[in-house]
Amino acid sequence: MALNLTGLYHMVSQENMDAYLHALDINIALRKIVCLLRPSKEITHDPETGHMKIRTLTTFRNFDMDFTLGKEFAEDLGPVDGRVCQTTVDWEGDKLVCVQKGEKENRGWMHWVEGDLLHLEMRVQGVVAKQVFKKVK
Rank of each mutant, 00 (worst) to 15 (best):
T44N: 11
H45F: 10
D46A: 04
D46W: 07
P47W: 02
T49E: 00
G50T: 06
G50A: 02
H51D: 10
M52V: 11
M52I: 05
M52L: 09
M52Y: 02
K53T: 14
K53E: 12
T56G: 00
L57C: 07
T58Q: 12
T59W: 00
T59S: 12
T59D: 05
T59Y: 03
F60Y: 15
F60M: 02
R61S: 05
N62S: 08
M65W: 11
D66Y: 07
T68G: 00
T68R: 13
G70K: 05
E72S: 08
A74S: 13
A74L: 12
A74K: 15
A74T: 09
E75V: 09
D76F: 03
D76P: 01
L77E: 05
L77V: 03
L77Q: 10
G78I: 01
G78K: 14
V80M: 13
V80G: 08
D81L: 03
D81E: 03
R83Q: 15
R83E: 08
V84Y: 08
C85W: 02
Q86I: 10
Q86K: 14
T87L: 07
T88Y: 00
V89P: 01
D90R: 12
D90F: 06
D90K: 15
D90L: 14
D90T: 03
W91Y: 06
E92D: 11
E92M: 00
E92C: 12
D94W: 03
D94N: 12
K95W: 02
K95V: 01
L96P: 07
C98K: 07
C98M: 06
V99S: 04
Q100R: 09
Q100D: 04
K101L: 11
G102R: 11
G102Y: 05
G102V: 10
E103I: 15
K104P: 06
K104F: 15
E105S: 14
R107A: 03
R107W: 10
G108S: 05
G108T: 03
G108W: 06
W109H: 15
V113Y: 10
E114F: 07
E114T: 11
G115N: 13
L117W: 06
L118N: 14
H119F: 09
H119K: 13
H119M: 14
H119V: 09
H119G: 09
H119L: 06
H119R: 06
H119A: 01
E121P: 10
E121H: 13
E121W: 07
E121D: 13
R123F: 12
R123I: 03
V124Y: 08
V127H: 12
V127M: 07
A129K: 12
K130M: 09
